[in-house]
Amino acid sequence: MLVIDCPYCGPRNSTEFRHAGEAGKSRDVANSTPAEWRRYLYEFNNPLGWVREHWFHSSGCRRYISSERHTGNNEVRWVVPFGTPAPSTTSDKETGA
């Protein structure tokens, strides 16, 4: 089980969190075609590599947070409050965001 270092609470088991999806999705209610909307709803990049994603600390501070995790070995290299700029450890190219 992963440890996620919540910026508000400190390191906690991932069972305290609810995974809240990959970062970088845009919600366009006004202009989406059905295909685009369903891609927004259901499709994820899910690459083997570094992924930016969101978590909700549901059994802790109840804040949304953002992280970057490697899907191959589950290493989490940073966690920040939602809406904070990502640390400059990675290029956007690398994250695919």
């Binding site: 969101h54 909700f56 804040r63 949304y64 939602f82 809406g83």
Partner: peptide
């Protein structure tokens, strides 16, 4: 409750 927090914290901050 979680869902409302999602709207407030991630979409309409």
């Amino acid at each position: 409750w979680d869902w409302l927090e999602m709207w407030l914290q991630t979409v309409h901050r």
